[in-house]
């Protein structure tokens, strides 16, 4: 993603897909054997591959009713385990641009922000309400408002949370952090020059 492509992310409007279960780790999202490559290009092809095979056609990502969904509804501690950015890359390339869950693993959430993907957390009752609504009527379009940290579905508007720093990065188009960090200029070298193990003791 180059700096020129940086865009402001204010809302996501799409159909949604539900994957139930807590503690879904990044090895399940993208098994390690598919990471023997030097680009992210093919990551979308193997999204949840082992889970899908084990479910014998019954995995939500194989479900025709959820086809083309852009928002993924998950449980607690989604994306735990390995720091592999291959996991959000895989989900993004499969077609998701936002995740709504009860909680997210920290490195996963940080990786999502780096890619301009939204992670919205909801309380457990709200998540269940949303899951039931989407499973019942998967054709509905839902809408995430990033500034308000809400998601609106046929069941109504649910208040969630996005950490303030992340929300501002998305809204202001500063989620591609390299250029922001480089703005510090010589202050980086100045900080480094005051540190023993970098400068020499």
């Amino acid at each position: 993603m180059s700096q020129s492509e940086m865009t402001r992310i204010t809302e996501i409007k799409a159909r949604a897909c539900v994957i139930r279960g807590d503690d879904i780790d990044t090895d399940r999202i993208i098994p390690a054997r598919f990471m023997k490559v030097i680009t992210f290009d093919d990551m979308g092809l193997h999204c949840f591959e082992d889970d899908r095979k084990a479910a014998k056609g019954l995995h939500p990502l194989e479900d025709e009713r959820f086809k083309g969904a852009g928002i993924l509804i998950v449980g607690k501690n989604f994306g735990c385990g390995s720091s592999r950015e291959h996991a959000p890359q895989s989900l993004m390339r499969f077609g998701f641009s936002a995740f709504v869950g009860e909680s997210f693993a920290e490195i996963f959430a940080g990786n999502c922000t780096s890619l301009g993907l939204v992670c919205l957390t909801l309380g457990s009752d709200e998540i269940e309400t949303l899951r039931e609504s989407i499973e019942l009527e998967p054709d509905q379009e839902v809408q995430i408002d990033v500034a308000q940290a809400t998601i609106s579905a046929r069941t109504g508007r649910l208040q969630g949370e996005i950490p303030a720093g992340t929300r501002d990065q998305l809204l202001e188009g500063r989620w591609d952090s390299t250029s922001v960090l480089l703005e510090a200029g010589e202050a980086i070298e100045q900080t480094a020059s005051g540190i023993g193990y970098i400068r020499g003791y």
Partner: peptide, 21 residues
Amino acid sequence: AFGIGTSQVRDILASQCLALA
């Protein structure tokens, strides 16, 4: 000491820094 994703590896290579809460 902590783990990071690939976009953050890029950030460190470019700036030796990370944006963190």
